[in-house]
Write a protein that binds this DNA or RNA. Structure first.
Lengths: 368, 368
DNA sequence: TTGTATGCGTTATCAG
DNA sequence: CTGATAACGCATACAA
């Protein structure tokens, strides 16, 4: 990607004072953005040469290159992306559709994904679907129509026709935040069930028997589903009845987490631990606990998932599952680029999570 | 730019079974995305008619429209955006460059901005610049090259040549998160200085005299500058010496806020209040206070800015300045669309902030 | 090394 | 109401 710096002080005057009609004898013709042609004329070469200067500078002799680059500079030329895409049938653009930008869950991983992409000369286009499958479908179409060379999707759960559509348009795609080597598209992520299962094992080992969970909406969300499943399995493996898991589903918002926690605490007998689908819900739970005067972890334990910054800020700090978001973002970018460039057929990569012990999980009250 | 390797036909069959192999005697020719032409042929009309069906359905008779739409459907046709932009010279796309996606500061406002845009038929393209002016410059060029009809920028502080460039390309732009009716481009935002000044007034009224501030990097950030200035002015107005404001500049990260707070607490005499440039820094300060065993607000008060969710989660909850992000996002979207559509010349709009009293600000120790 | 000419997939201007 | 056809701005095979 070329880096052009334009300097042209003249037009700066326009706004500050539209008073005096700066009639530049344009004969009313709106001056529009300069094109390859303009640059070519200014430099006294053909458009092909200008194009080459920009795209493969080594294929043009020093002298002319200088002249061209200078023309580019002084005209403030920027290649028209649409035209370039049409001609080259390649956009160096990757699209990503994430469920939400509203909280930090995807921010970190995506940031790294973008940085990695940029290093390889790609640009990232992001949309958020607000967890709505219809919106997501529309955004996938939009991104494809925009010429995205590849797509990053979150989780596997979506209608088959979407995958068919991507196949038809030959758009390589990759799933992240989820890992399942048997599914298509390939995925770069972590085992949500296993990770949550590990945490549940810790919870059970600490002596908890009355377990409650505040989950995200599982409908259409394989990560949420898997996390619930992870808890269930751990219970079963420890001789507990998984059906006795008190489950509360809600959207991933702090307020919702607080609300759900309140409901759970109203039950009798009270659960001794509330496992949350992610740190955001857990933060809400903690806030409500404080409001209700319920001490965590003395009276009830709370756990999170993701280990976003929030987890460390909150009081008490959350025992949670650390997800190496940056590593995931980086590896996803590399793999997707490889797919786009035909270097890889699409390989699934598992990212390891790890438990982070902090203060919000302890033995149940009355134990020892 | 490296040479491009295109994925060849081999990988085609992978995921789904297209059922009846609609062998179009392609002889191994990679089946590519359907075009207007394909649809036209399938429906037995001209490309012009297909285009009309999609863009102004009322200009074509019911019968043919049905046929065309069906062809579109069965072929899984999606208009090629690049081609459309080139032909129509209009993209119905708005670009936004924000300093970071890493924390929640811009998330809420941008989400609303996007929603509002979508309602009006526009798509939002977001990039984040990591607070780097060079990256921002490049991204502005990218967005313009991509045919953005308009641009949303954060704050006014950037080189004049960038504005010249936008002017040359005739791209309407709007500034948000900042308000200054005398500047160009027009801005939809709030008075950072006034808002912070109001908070500082409250701090001083509470009896504080030894005031410290953890600010974001003021270089190239007019919001950060204005917030510092707001504190200074309030001090001056209250007969304090603004030069005695202990100032600590750092990037907007929790860890940095914590670090800065530590340094401030090591000074002697200790400040009795630490005003933070935003809630993220304040959260860091609070965390460090807890670590150091310094009680907030008993031993030292802490204030924030923005009133993002974090502010309410943290212990003690932050006294801060509430910014109606959604309202700002909504109004910015409306105004920018009006500018793009030629309905408005560009009008600046001031959004009102308000103080939120929570627990982190009290009288200085030893007062009363 | 450089220039010429063609095509990319739409929209829009004209005729019909 | 519908069909040709000319742009749109760039990349690239081919020629010189």
């Amino acid at each position: 990607m070329q880096a052009l710096t334009l300097v042209d002080g003249i037009s700066a005057v326009l706004w500050y004072d539209e008073g005096q009609d700066t009639d530049r004898h344009d004969m009313g013709k709106t001056r529009s953005a300069p094109t390859l042609n303009d640059v070519a004329k200014a430099a006294g070469v053909s458009t092909a040469t200008v194009s080459r200067c920009l795209n493969s500078p080594d294929r043009v002799i020093e002298a002319t290159r200088q002249r061209v680059l200078q023309a580019v500079e002084s005209l403030g030329y920027t290649p028209n992306f649409a035209a370039r895409v049409m001609a080259a049938k390649r956009s160096y653009t990757i699209g990503a559709i994430i469920p939400t930008m509203d909280n930090a869950i995807f921010a970190r991983g995506l940031q790294e994904f973008q940085d990695q992409l940029r290093e390889s000369g790609y640009t990232l286009l992001v949309s958020s679907s607000a967890y709505d499958p219809e919106v997501e479908r529309e955004q996938i179409r939009t991104l494809v129509a925009r010429g995205a060379d590849g797509l990053l999707l979150i989780g596997h759960a979506r209608d088959a026709d979407i995958y068919a559509y991507l196949e038809r348009h030959q758009i390589p795609s990759l799933v992240a935040w989820s890992y399942d080597p048997h599914m298509h598209p390939p995925s770069v992520g972590f085992g949500n069930a296993a990770a949550m299962g590990e945490l549940a094992q810790r919870v059970i080992s600490a002596g908890h028997r009355r377990i409650a969970m505040i989950s995200g909406i599982t409908q259409g969300n394989d990560r949420a589903q898997a996390r619930v499943e992870g808890v269930r399995q751990a219970m079963t493996e420890n001789g507990l009845n998984a059906d006795e898991l008190t489950l509360c589903e809600t959207t991933y918002e702090i307020d919702k987490g607080a609300e759900a926690f309140g409901k759970l605490m109203a039950r009798s007998p009270r659960p001794t631990v509330v496992m949350c689908g992610n740190d955001v819900l857990a933060a809400g739970a903690l806030r409500e606990a404080q409001r209700l005067g319920i001490s965590v972890p003395d009276q009830v334990s709370v756990t999170g998932f993701d280990d976003i910054e929030l987890a460390e800020i909150v009081t008490p700090a959350l025992t949670t599952v650390h997800v190496p978001h940056r590593e995931m973002g980086r590896k996803a970018a590399r793999e997707l680029i490889a797919m786009v460039e035909g270097t890889s057929e699409g390989r699934s990569i598992c990212i390891d999570t790890r438990l982070v012990d902090r203060c919000s999980l302890a033995e149940p009250p009355g134990a020892q």
